[in-house]
Amino acid sequence: MELTFPFEHGVSVQWMHASHAHIPSQNLRRWLLDTGSLTERLQECCDTFSLTRLGQGEVPLYANEKRWLPTASQKSWQIREVVLYGDGAPWVFARSVLPETLITSELANLGTQPLGVRLFNDDRFIRSNFELCEVPASAFDFSNRQIEQSDGPQQTMLWGRRSRFHMGNDYIIVAEIFLPDAPAYKNG
Rank of each mutant, 00 (worst) to 15 (best):
E176A: 06
F130H: 08
S150I: 13
W159G: 08
Q146V: 07
S143P: 00
L61M: 13
H166P: 00
P99W: 03
D141S: 12
F165S: 00
F93M: 06
G111S: 09
L54C: 02
W77S: 06
G160V: 07
P153D: 14
S150W: 06
D141Q: 13
S128R: 13
T52I: 11
D122Y: 03
D122L: 02
V174S: 01
H166L: 02
P60C: 06
G116M: 08
C133A: 15
L98R: 06
T52L: 11
T104M: 07
N169R: 09
P70S: 11
F140I: 09
V135K: 05
N129I: 05
L158P: 04
Q155N: 12
I79K: 10
L102M: 15
L132Y: 02
F93D: 08
R80A: 09
P114F: 10
Q78I: 06
P60Q: 07
P70K: 13
L115V: 06
P153N: 08
T112Q: 10
W77H: 10
S128K: 11
H166G: 01
V82H: 04
L115T: 12
V59D: 02
F130K: 11
L102E: 15
K75N: 11
V82C: 00
F165V: 00
K66T: 08
Y85Q: 05
D141I: 01
L119K: 09
F142C: 14
L61P: 10
N121A: 10
V92Q: 06
F120P: 10
